[in-house]
Design a protein around this nucleic acid. Structure first.
Lengths: 232, 232
DNA sequence: ACGAATGTTAATCTTTGGTTAATGTTTTAA
DNA sequence: TTAAAACATTAACCAAAGATTAACATTCGT
């Protein structure tokens, strides 16, 4: 099998080199970046199976980098390395969408197990077409990468990240049920009263945009979710 | 949203009760088992979204339980709780197929974040939903996912969750007895005088919808249940 | 004919969703 | 670096949808 590609971002050159070698010995294809900036550049230039990010780095810390990576890619697993054990930091990491968290010093074998567990998990997931980023919705055209929505020959409207993801999620389920829960867990990464209300606010915003085409409607299915209907 | 079901297996009654309450407060539906044996029994009797297992337990330890659970179910996420910090134990846990590992004492908020991260990961896995949701009932067409009932070329009628589930249950037993008790336990999740009367109200509503096709009827079988009859 | 089960309607209660605006947070650009 | 702009969340209020309950009528089985 093709070696799994790992992006390792670690500012301590010694530790970075050792960890890289260790992973290479264990049959991974490792790219090492010395800081967050470089890490993001390398992330954009290739496709990785896993990112291992140091939290404490000059210029751009691990969280910021993780957030940038998540904007580009919701799927790739992220593991944080940190010397900190502060609760807030761990929580922050999970909020950003981390898959795991490791305190330094850690045992390399444990890291290896975690890596294997995570990569295997991802491999077993059947992924939907997440690469699609252009959608025709009635007379609208949505580009979810550039985050704009155009209507015929009018000036395209810019969408906020949340607006855009929500509309994309609806579009992926065109004319079918898009469960509330799905959007909440995938986009808001949490499912409670407030995130749910927040989502309703975004539904209202989207409806406002979409009403220029009377054949497009976002219907509610009480207690279940929403349905983007496009009449032909 | 339906609360996530968690199976918590912990032999320390105090700690178990506290953790259970904490999780319940955070909107999980928690079942507590006092040992591995009981844990496995409860696991077999229901479907859980997550298992949290204490490692050190008399008679049957967490690893053994995890292995048994994995035999029945390869999917359900497992988190181990342990006072041990021995490397071998952590590795053993991952080998058995754990999703995460937490050392006692741990921070409850951290556990909560881990639970959310894990459940979200599972939610994002696309599972082929092969449950039947479309039914032909005489000249009617029922879509129980989008919850509508259409009749020939007329505008489809929206059904409420209870109406829909009840009609689906009847359709699954077309021309056969659909026992009262079945609907009450599956849909109303309770079987008493009031839920029974409530169900009768819903039967009346469904009859009203269905009378557009004179070949479709919902008959009562006194003391037993109902029968959805479709004459051909 | 009698009690128990069912049919029906309407009133009441509960949950969920729509909307607007205030408040908080992050990003952007000067 | 800081202020403005953009974005996101929270709060409050109201409306809509759904579910239950109560009351009374009818039917069933023995």
């Amino acid at each position: 099998m093709e070696a799994r590609k790992i992006l390792l971002v670690e500012d301590d050159p010694n530790f970075g080199a050792i960890l890289k070698d260790y992973l290479i010995i264990n049959d991974f294809d490792v790219t090492l970046a010395k800081n967050g900036m470089e890490g993001f550049e390398k992330f954009k230039k290739d496709i990785y199976d896993l990112c291992i990010l140091d939290v404490m780095m000059p210029y751009k810390d691990g969280y910021t980098l993780a957030r940038e990576i998540r904007e580009k890619n919701q799927e790739v697993p992220i593991i944080f390395l940190t010397a900190k054990t502060l609760k807030e930091d761990v929580l922050k990491g999970y909020k950003v969408g981390a898959d795991d968290y490791l305190n330094k010093p850690f045992d390399s074998e444990v890291l290896l197990m975690k890596i294997k567990a995570i990569i295997q998990r991802k491999a077993s997931e059947v992924k939907p077409d997440n690469t699609k980023f252009e959608f025709e919705i009635g007379k609208f055209h949505l580009n979810s990468k550039l985050r704009f929505l155009s209507f015929q020959n009018e000036e395209p409207v810019k969408l906020s990240p949340k607006e855009c993801e929500l509309l994309k999620m609806l579009a992926l389920h065109e004319n079918d049920l898009m469960p509330r829960e799905l959007a909440l867990t995938k986009i808001w990464r949490d499912d409670n009263y407030f995130t749910s209300r927040s989502m309703d606010v975004y539904i209202a915003k989207l409806r406002k945009y979409m009403k220029r085409d009377e054949n497009v409607e976002i219907l509610n299915i009480h207690g279940e979710g929403f349905r983007l209907v496009v009449k032909k």
